[in-house]
Design a protein around this nucleic acid. Structure first.
Lengths: 347, 347
DNA sequence: TTGAAAGCGCTAACAA
DNA sequence: TTGTTAGCGCTTTCAA
């Protein structure tokens, strides 16, 4: 019923050419005279012609899809961090004519049982993996030899787009030093997490450069702990219990910083007067905290875009492929320090 | 390089049958002898055969995809409401062998300029639309005559899966009445929003049933306002300014309730002793509010599942089609009142 | 119960 | 510069 959608054949007939000519025109390939090219384009537009993806994919022996995988608990947490990253990949995907298939995997991934459907069915040309995921999963992906790009995570053998964790942390701590602080704590969670480890490293570097001592007692971390507000509250309590209290703390992320802030305020301390605070990520809640939080801003959408572009290049041979963008590098996305009240004493 | 993936042809050859027989077996169609069926299945498994989606779709003249559309500002807000709904659709989609293409549209949708790519390219068999979207968009979708199901929103001519807004609100207000309250305010935002209108209606019904008067002064709403925490703060201030202050308030959602709570607490009032509060949605923050918030719980993933199932039935003719599930109905998803401290006076 | 063959809409090698 | 034709891997008539 209704008008069936028109095919390349209809266009060819109406333009008085062969289907291969139409194909050539539509893909800007081969040498087609300007006259026919224009005629074909015009007819195609008039007919509202849109190529069939299935036909094209079948012929090209590809799927036209890329998979986007992340842990469910990451996707559903209240800060839409990965949501923005996904959005970035989606925007960029449009330029490459790729569809993005988003799926989540559980935290405790089990091979086979949890393998994303598009992997089992081999209906993606490439894969984007956001955030920390199970090694088991990475192992499985590695074995599939599918072009893959990690985002906000790193693992042996995979190209990745990562936050400039170290640089961002360094700038944040330098800011604190500049505000006159000398005893600056580091508040982290599980330092085996690469991002956290790198932020700790940035903290170290800033201290070293400033000629300040690294006091191990000021490095407040907790194995197996997630970098959440609750963890921040616990570490905040540890910070309070320190014999020689630091005057500032750089927290590995905003959730931790917010937790620390809560604990400090409840204990009657003032931020930033008693303890200055800086976070990382610049989440939505940072600006609205009881004391607006200074934080390191991350360009999430941009990270998604970079990753998708990188992946598209590896997938090729869409017209998007760029000769220089080969190899398996890590792309470091820049950050920006956003200074708010939590780190600047009132005049 | 490497072993190319095996095709139906490989399976046929290895099993000593024709490709049509393999096809029949794999789709449980026609009459195939038990012996061949088993042999084919065995061989297919051994070869790790997975049918090519592109080929199947091309042959079947469908795409195997469904689109999931929501507003970007809805997707990225910190409460992962639509994220859970999406997850529900994704889970259900697996059962129907459909892929979900998620895309966002801007709040101020403009036809053509913002039309989702998969709609332009006609590469979805059906559409899921979550949350309130621009009428312009709905109009465009309507004209495409694509099987569509709305989620958490209603519009003329579309089947929908909606929260039992009225029932949930009624139960919430009945709970307040049961706690002894007689002057109960309604806190909403823009009542032209269908969900809010229905929640207001539930509020009315509860009052009427209890024989309580409907005092217009207690209906605190605000045109053009989004149901956010900030709006809740403003409405909370209006509530405080009331000459005859209510002893309880039912808020159209948790964000509003949290905003109201903030205002009340800052004004030195106690919740629930001075004013009892009930919200709607049971968001993540409800349980962790300064005073844990009583709220109406919504089963988001289930809503996504219901919508996807409904859509799959309309798309058919996958084996999933059910004869009774036809027509264009609205499915009402149940709710559940979660009672917490904000509505129950201490003994 | 099975097989041969046409066709879905496209790309690309090859010929003209 | 353009056209013919052979696939891509599947489903589905139609015959056997």
């Amino acid at each position: 019923m209704g008008s069936a959608r028109s095919t390349i054949r209809d266009v060819a007939r109406a333009a008085g050419v062969s289907i291969s000519t139409v194909s050539l025109v539509l893909n800007n390939k081969g040498n087609v005279s300007e006259a026919t090219r224009r005629r074909v384009l015009k007819v195609a537009r008039e007919l509202g012609y849109v190529p069939s993806r299935a036909a094209r994919d079948l012929s090209l022996q590809r799927t036209g899809n890329v998979g986007f995988v992340l842990r469910e608990d990451h996707f559903t947490r209240s800060e839409p961090f990965y949501t923005y990253i996904f959005l970035g990949t989606e925007f960029e995907a449009r330029l490459h004519n790729l569809y993005v298939l988003l799926t989540t995997i559980p935290r405790d991934y089990r091979r086979g049982e949890h393998t994303p459907r598009f992997l089992r069915e081999r209906s993606v040309d490439g894969l984007l993996i956001a955030g920390k995921v199970s090694d088991v999963f990475l192992e499985e992906v590695r074995a599939m030899k599918l072009p893959t790009v990690l985002i906000d995570y790193e693992a042996e053998g995979f190209p990745a787009v990562v936050i400039d964790n170290q640089g961002g942390a360094r700038v944040a701590v330098e800011h604190l030093i500049q505000q006159g602080h000398r005893r600056i704590a580091f508040v982290g969670a599980d330092i085996r997490h690469p991002s956290i480890a790198n932020r700790l490293e940035g903290y170290r570097i800033a201290l070293v450069r400033a000629g300040l001592p690294m006091d191990p007692a000021l490095v407040l971390v907790e194995d197996e702990a997630e970098p959440t507000r609750a963890t921040g509250q616990r570490l905040g309590a540890r910070l309070l219990a320190l014999t020689e209290r630091p005057t500032a703390a750089f927290c590995a992320n905003d959730a931790l910083a917010l937790g620390v802030m809560e604990t400090l305020l409840q204990a009657g301390l003032r931020v930033p007067d008693d303890v200055a605070l800086v976070g990382f990520d610049d989440v939505q809640g940072a600006a609205q905290a009881p004391v607006p939080l200074t934080s390191v801003r991350v360009f999430k959408e941009q990270m998604g875009e970079l990753a998708m572009r990188h992946l598209a290049e590896r997938i090729g041979p869409e017209q998007t492929r760029r000769p220089y963008a080969r190899g398996q590098h890590t792309i470091v996305a820049p950050t920006e320090l956003v200074v708010r009240a939590s780190s600047v004493k009132n005049a």
